[in-house]
Amino acid sequence: MPLLTGKYRLEAILRRSNDKGTMRPANMTELEHSEPPLQDVAKRASSLFAPFWMFKEVFNHRFLVRNLIRRDVRGRYRNAMLGYAWALIEPALFALVYWFLFIMLSGNPDEMYAVWVLIGVVVWGCFGKSLSATTNSLVGNARTMHLVYFPRVIFPITAVGANFVVTLMSSLVIIPILMVYDLPITMHLFWVPVGIFLAGIMALGFGMMVAPLNCVQRDVGHFMRFVVRAGFFVSPVMWTAEMAAQRGAWGEAALYNPVVLPITMVRHALEGKSVDLPPEVILSSLIITCVLLVTGAMVFARLERGAVKYL
């Protein structure tokens, strides 16, 4: 391979003889100042600024984020005859089962109940699936983590992003509902994607806290599976905020579950109104979401450094 030897060899030899033979010239220090600075090989955020840094990195790596989300979504509906239609069929089938269950348990629901369950399944699905996906986002990408460096926060972000996209597809189910139930088409339908986004953000904040821990101990992943299953029942999927409000103190306490806000927001959007919950419930839900996101980003920034060593 003689093609490379000459140039580099010569430089190196010259440099070495320089280093050994002569004293460092006095103006060397001045020259060094003009050099491009050496930077840490992996830029990592200090915990304090982690939330802002996270958004910046996602923006800088938007091409990567987009491609990873596409990979996730494509992979999910691979080799399926019905393909993307499953994003609609799956929640519809679940809603059917829950509707049937409800009729068996407590008799006559109002005629819109089946729709509310379906909305509940869709929005909860965004939260639940995002949460499981973020929890496993680092463990599942172990090989990539060992071979390529890009800001690790991209992994939970794409996990949530993919579920957000899928849920948006699921939410197309609203169109036939609007027609069948003859619901008003209003500007308030704008709240549908907002609600879904909110559910995703909650899952992201929560998931970022546990994803690095899951690398150390897989028990975290098993426990989170339980959290998602159990969360289903204490969230308004099979019930609505209105039902809970009629059930006394426990019912009112249940409204402080942060997931109540996004689900109710989407349901009310279909009714043609903006979210109609007590203001203290809305406020507490938004505060919890912000706190989850900020602490999630901070915890993640603190723990992700070490996480790769456990994979």
């Binding site: 990873l68 990539t144 060992h146």
Partner: peptide, 27 residues
């Protein structure tokens, strides 16, 4: 050097964009 493993002690610095050729086709 590529920034994948953060050192427990000391510092790793580099000037310029780094590209690691390993495990072709990751992802």
């Amino acid at each position: 050097i590529a920034g994948i493993y953060p050192p427990d002690n000391g510092t790793a610095k580099a000037a310029g964009e780094i590209s690691l050729l390993a495990g072709l086709g990751t992802g």
